[in-house]
Design a protein around this nucleic acid. Structure first.
Length: 498
RNA sequence: GGUCCUGUGGCCGAGUGGCUAGGCAGAGCUCUGCAAAAGCUCCCACAGCGGUUCGAAUCCGCUCGGGACCUCCA
């Protein structure tokens, strides 16, 4: 079998994965800023790295998965507003900052549950780690790579870049950065425009504020990840994940801070997921084109033709390799919905197939199926190519359906093949891709009612009373319940969970 | 303006130089009381122009288009 390879943004190559501590993996993923509601774009990294987490577990690693909650608030362009995003919104909504943060944290957790993501092992908050952040800043100052100005502390990027490879991760050249013509306010404090804040002095109206050796203020954006990753994963850890848009300046700066404090480059493998686009443009608040998750699930948004179940969204995201952009459209989401339903139906039908013959009657088909299944691991090992995994699963779907419809004899495949099929389908669909049925069939009352209706319909059909049987089917359809006549005279039903 | 990425059939998307990706939609057929579902078949595309090669969607160059980052951003 192949071995896991991960595309490392730092080297821009796929590299064989080797964990620092045998049997263990440290995984850090940049979490949400809880100053507002999560949108579709945010869903991608959390679903992507959920699969990474699941797969590493499947490979037998004990994973410590750390994903932070940024609740301290970053600044609007430094100095421009003299208050951070969270405190500003709090005033508008007449809420306590922590009340606001709590609200969006809860909403985020709810959405993650809807997506069937496994919670991280540790979910540290920025506000809970002010002490560690201050400690790190002090170390950087002592090492001579930061300076204090009017109660704020800045990182000396030029000095760092002279000795280390600042810019390599994001493919940036310091000289180019210096030439950037963009004029920002509040830059005059910095010795150099490429320097970034480690600590910012808080203006009087700034609500979120902490005491520090440099006065009352709040931490810079990048330092929280350095502090929390170091605290929970150590000076060096295996994988750091996040969206591509965080590569610069966030991850670049994070790497610089950690390198100075810990005397070693912190991360073995940097992983970055690509963006979700809408009409070709990145979904982001600056573009005013975001679709909040609550609205995506409810369908209550001008661009949405209908509601999309979280499982459909998850499937939609996994149908693409995580390093490619993924374009949102109603058409694409609806295609995903149909595809997912077909896959899950086949998965369910697979469980029902019974077969005991040890020799496959159709050797060619048997070999083909075994090949398709055995490739699944290779695809995951190739930088988590869930798109290819799904493609192979879909290639097996007609075989399963054919057996169910008796156009293919169950004996075509050997019992051993069925065992492998059932086992691997369960592992990949349920355990690794985290997909689950999104139709409702476990409500006991509904079940009872449906049993009755199906019984009546069967009787009607038996008497060729098609008016009655069609009435039942059509009325139920209007309620979102689909009744299907099976080949053997039986009837099945499924209902939307909405 | 700088740096980087990208352009695949009606839509979404895999693609390691040679072999049908896959999903959805569309057409036909089979099954069915009719549907739905399912199965089979068809639609065999790689922005354009050059080049390298026995052979290129895949490598190189140019042109055109799209995007990301350089500022908060998943």
């Amino acid at each position: 079998m192949s071995k896991l390879k991960i595309y490392n943004s730092y080297s821009r190559k796929k590299e064989l994965f080797k964990s620092l501590t045998p049997g263990h993996v440290g995984l850090y993923v940049c979490g949400p800023t809880v100053s507002g509601e999560s949108h579709l774009g945010h869903a991608r990294p959390y679903i992507t790295f959920d699969v990474v987490n699941r797969y590493l577990n499947y490979l037998g690693y004990k994973v410590r998965y750390v994903r932070n909650i940024t609740d301290a608030g970053h600044f609007e362009e430094e100095g421009r507003e003299a208050e951070d995003k969270i405190s500003k919104k709090a005033t508008l909504e007449k809420l306590e900052p922590m009340e606001l943060v709590q609200k969006y944290t809860n909403l985020f957790h709810w959405a993650m549950e809807q997506f069937n993501t496994i919670p991280p092992s540790i979910e540290p908050t920025a506000t809970g780690h002010i002490v560690e952040q201050i400690g790190m800043i002090e170390q950087i100052i002592q090492a001579g790579y930061a300076y204090e100005k009017n109660g704020s502390v800045y990182f000396n990027v030029k000095k760092y870049a002279a000795e280390y490879d600042y810019g390599k991760l994001s493919g940036r050249v310091i000289d180019d950065l210096l030439e950037t013509t963009r004029e920002l306010e509040g830059q005059e404090e910095k010795n150099d425009k490429v320097d970034f804040a480690l600590w910012k002095a808080a203006a009087p109206e700034h609500i979120m504020r902490w005491k520090s050796p440099w006065g009352v203020g709040f931490p810079g954006w990048h330092i929280e990840c350095s502090a929390m990753a170091t605290k929970y994963l150590g000076k060096q850890f295996d994988i750091h994940g996040g969206g591509m848009d965080l590569m610069f300046p966030h991850h670049e700066s994070e790497m610089a801070q950690s390198t100075i404090c810990n005397h070693v480059s912190p991360v073995s493998y940097w992983m970055h997921n690509n963006m979700i686009t809408i009409n070709g443009k990145k979904m982001g608040k600056s573009y005013n084109n975001v679709i909040p998750l609550t609205q995506l699930f409810s369908g209550n948004h001008p661009t949405l033709e209908k509601a999309y179940h979280p499982m459909v969204v998850r499937f939609f995201i996994l149908q693409t390799q995580y390093r490619s952009t993924l374009d949102f459209s109603n058409e694409a989401l609806q295609a995903a919905e149909k595809g997912l339903r077909r896959l899950l139906d086949a998965f369910e039908n697979l469980q029902k197939i019974q077969c005991t013959n040890s020799i496959a009657a159709d050797e060619e088909l048997n070999v083909k199926v075994i090949k398709l299944v055995s490739e699944l691991d290779d695809f995951m090992n190739d930088d988590f190519n869930t798109a290819k995994v799904l493609a192979n699963l879909f290639e097996i779907v007609p075989v399963i359906n054919g057996i169910k419809d008796k156009t293919i004899l169950p004996e075509a495949l050997s019992s051993e093949t069925y065992e492998v099929l059932k086992k691997q389908f369960k592992i990949f669909i349920v355990d690794l891709l985290g997909l689950k049925n999104f139709t409702q069939t476990d409500n006991e009352t509904l079940k009872g009612v449906m049993e009755l209706l199906i019984d009546i319909r069967k009787q009607a059909k038996g008497k060729k009373d098609f008016a009655t049987s069609d009435k039942i089917r059509n009325q139920l359809l209007r309620l979102g319940i689909v009744v299907k006549d099976e080949k053997d005279g039986g009837m099945s039903w499924s209902a939307e969970t909405l």
